[in-house]
């Protein structure tokens, strides 16, 4: 093959990998079932807000903090991220991908990005419906749109970060579910409740971006709050940077796993 026929940059390969992965994610029945369920739940919450005496703002916050943050977002992410590499191992197609002239981190990113984007679109759509159907009728646009923008970004970023975590853990432990569930149980449910170290959990940063960590202590109060495990409100962009950094770090871990792990297929 003349080298001139080959693109010098890996961009073409990554683009091909991403478009094939997107096609695969969109063709997966589970994606549509979860998406449909998410929309259905959102519509039910809108119905509750519209046809009962419950306050729309309260329904919106309950959906966000009681349903989406602890359940929907991790569930969507584990469903999309967990199998990313594990499925290739189980159907024995991974060697075809590994034996292409593509750096392993790019290979991992090429598979992760479409899955994470679809996940973020699903959770974003659910949030958007509840916002438009519950929050806006109750509180109006003007006072809520800025907070919604941050919340929307937080939900999207948290979905992406979780997808990256579950994909990397899946690749590392060759298990699409168990390692992810263990991580979620330990880090996101237990550690997120503990003083100081809760700052390493996605749950904390998502809560911070969605306005659930409202207190804003400064100086020595911040240290006391950290040590006591009280609510700590950090600037939203700190959490945004954390979630973006976690995604990048997990992509690196995934690439490292693909480089170093012996896939005895």
């Amino acid at each position: 093959m003349p080298s001139s026929d080959r693109q010098t940059a890996g961009a073409t390969s990554i683009g091909v990998l991403m478009s094939e992965e997107l096609r695969r994610v969109l063709r997966r029945r589970a994606t549509w079932i979860v998406g449909g369920l998410g929309v259905l739940v959102a519509l039910v919450m809108v119905g509750i807000s519209a046809f009962t005496s419950l306050d729309g703002h309260g329904v919106y916050r309950t959906t966000l903090n009681g349903l989406m943050r602890p359940l929907v977002i991790p569930f969507v992410a584990i469903l999309l991220g967990g199998p990313l590499i594990v499925e290739e191992v189980e159907q024995r197609t991974l060697p075809y991908l590994l034996l292409r002239p593509i750096p392993r981190a790019q290979l991992f990113a090429g598979k992760l990005i479409p899955a994470a984007a679809v996940g973020a679109a699903l959770t974003g759509a659910m949030l958007g419906i509840v916002y438009l159907g519950c929050e806006v009728p109750s509180m109006g646009w003007g006072d809520t749109i800025a907070d919604f923008g941050v919340t929307f970004g937080g939900v999207g970023l948290a979905t992406v970060a979780y997808t990256a975590v579950f994909a990397a853990l899946g690749a590392l432990f060759s298990s699409s579910l168990y390692a992810g569930i263990l991580y979620y149980g330990v880090v996101e449910l237990v550690i997120s409740q503990l003083p100081i170290i809760k700052l390493v959990s996605v749950q904390y940063h998502l809560a911070n971006m969605t306005g659930s960590e409202t207190a804003n202590p400064g100086g020595s109060s911040l240290i006391s709050a950290l040590l006591s495990g009280a609510s700590i409100g950090l600037p939203w962009w700190v959490s945004m940077l954390f979630l973006a950094g976690l995604t990048v770090a997990m992509t690196g871990v995934g690439g490292l796993v693909l480089s170093k792990k012996q896939f005895e297929i």
Binding site: M1, D5, R6, Q7, T8, A9, G10, T12, S13, V16, L17, E20, Y96, L97, R100, P101, I102
Partner: peptide, 17 residues
């Protein structure tokens, strides 16, 4: 074609190859 494109060939070259 998919696996050939992962070698960095563009669509038409990969299809021909």
């Amino acid at each position: 074609v998919y696996l050939t494109r992962l070698h960095g060939l563009d669509k038409s070259n990969a299809a021909a190859a």
